[in-house]
């Protein structure tokens, strides 16, 4: 059994939010629910400063805080490492939304579209979501499993890879089996450039980031100036 993981290369990411949109489209998430989102931060002080775009989503932690607080067992970690929510069990208490240190969980409060009435697309897309339950990124589980059934390799074959990964305009996202030492994600995690959000936190995210490696150059200021 694989242990799915993701690597997001911040040296490649330009913060375009293409992943956020690919996720909205693939998963048909209702308004306000962005399983994957892109935050933008500034690091440093003028002129030695850089803008850091940061895609954030469910980290599919090995020790998920959300799973620990869930009273119903709706949140569970599958054998392949995907943290998923069973929308038939969730009672919508939102303890997990608050417990997640990454802000990756969303409560689907009411069946409402982006406009006064649901558009044709929204009618079609929102079917899989259950009002009154909590939702979040599931590593495109359905897509990955359908791909596996067809003998495809997640992270390599488009049809078996999460939408945010194969769509990324800067080729900055990688998906694969962290238990396979030769997978791209494993190699990247071992590259020395990888880190996890909230270092020292016991949750142990399975979504890793690669450092942008930016030098905070003095922004056009010479030594001694």
């Amino acid at each position: 059994m694989a242990r799915w993981g993701m690597v997001i290369d911040l040296a490649r990411c330009i913060g375009c939010a293409g992943c956020q949109m690919a996720c909205k489209a693939e998963n048909g998430t209702p308004p306000g629910i962005t399983w994957c989102r892109v935050e933008v931060k500034d690091i440093g002080n003028f002129p030695a400063v850089r803008r850091i775009p940061l895609p954030v989503q469910c980290m599919h932690c090995r020790e998920p805080e959300c799973e620990k607080v869930c009273p119903t067992g709706a949140t569970e970690k599958t054998e392949s490492g995907i943290v998923r929510v069973d929308s038939e069990l969730c009672m919508g208490c939102r303890a997990c939304v608050l417990a997640c240190p990454y802000g990756a969980r969303y409560f689907y409060e009411e069946k409402k579209g982006y406009y006064e009435t649901l558009s044709l697309f929204e009618e079609l897309a929102y079917k899989r979501h259950r009002v009154g339950t909590v939702t979040k990124c599931d590593f495109c589980q359905e897509r990955v499993e359908r791909g596996l059934d067809q003998g495809l390799k997640p992270g390599v074959d488009r049809e078996a890879t999460p939408a945010c990964v194969f769509n990324c305009m800067t080729k900055g996202r990688f998906f694969g089996d962290l238990d396979d030492p030769r997978s791209t994600v494993s190699l990247l995690v071992a590259s020395g450039r990888a880190f996890q959000l909230l270092p020292g936190h016991p949750s142990d995210p399975q979504v890793y980031y690669l450092t942008p490696g930016t030098t905070l150059s003095a922004g056009g200021r010479e030594d001694g100036k």
Binding site: L10, K41, I43, A48, L98, L197, P199, T214, T215
Partner: peptide, 20 residues
């Protein structure tokens, strides 16, 4: 008052190298 800590808190050292 139960705010969430920013996800980048503590990651600064991973993000940039010191300037020239």
């Amino acid at each position: 008052a139960g705010g969430r800590a920013p996800v980048l808190a503590g990651n600064i050292r991973f993000l940039v190298r010191p300037g020239v």
